[in-house]
Nucleic acid binder design. Structure first.
Lengths: 113, 113
DNA sequence: TTATATACATAATATTCTTATGTATAATAA
DNA sequence: TTATTATACATAAGAATATTATGTATATAA
């Protein structure tokens, strides 16, 4: 069972920043596989969403890149910049707060007066 | 502190369906106020997002409406249809699952090999 | 009497996603 | 050996959904 993509919207940057804060450096394809593995195939990042987002994070100065060749195949490694590390913490803390807020909003009974 | 709108994206339908499953009937403005109250002003639904979404849910057969006049001012009450009730449960259960998945994905350390 | 709150709606724009397409190498299965 | 799948990048067209701005109108509070 795959999550409806609707739900995942808006979480991509947070996911990327978190994985990079744990792993020092990762390349795009690796990120898609890691997320697939860790979520038992329930979140599958598409390339059309991932790559433009990586580029945007880099353009914002949050990520730095190193290109390497594995045989003849190119691989582009991303790492958090100093600002990226700060941003990663902010995003994670905001997301944790958001989850708490949503849990409260959605779990409890709030009958109107 | 307001949540970045990015995070809230994709949760609007779930929020609406949940509030209506607790409250039998609500009107648009009331929904915005309820969400504002319950989240201590951290989630503020905008009219430009809310009304089109209500219309879409109605067009999908998930909501029914009754229009009433309070003095001379119109008020449009929304209620869950039978399919809406089913959908509401589905959405909430999916969201709960999603939260668990995201918690796992974001809380733990997953260093690559 | 002026600003704010209530109450709806929609249009232009922006953002961000899906889907499709393109290129190319490496590994595995038929 | 050849076709398929996996690896690995990228971008463009289109869809979905949000923001921001605008419009209309009544009711209430400063």
């Amino acid at each position: 069972m795959l999550f409806s993509s609707e739900l995942i919207k808006g979480t991509l940057k947070t996911i990327i920043l978190k994985l990079l804060s744990d792993n020092k450096r990762m390349y795009g394809y690796e990120i898609t596989q890691k997320v697939k593995d860790l979520t038992a195939d329930r979140i599958q990042l598409t390339e059309g969403a991932l790559y433009p987002t990586l580029h945007a994070l880099e353009a914002d100065g949050l990520l730095t890149t190193e290109t390497e060749y594995i045989g003849k195949r190119v691989r582009k490694y991303y790492s958090l910049s100093k600002e990226g590390k700060t941003k990663s913490k902010e995003k994670l803390s905001e997301f944790a707060d958001f989850i708490d807020t949503m849990k409260f909003l959605l779990d409890l009974k709030h009958k109107s007066a």
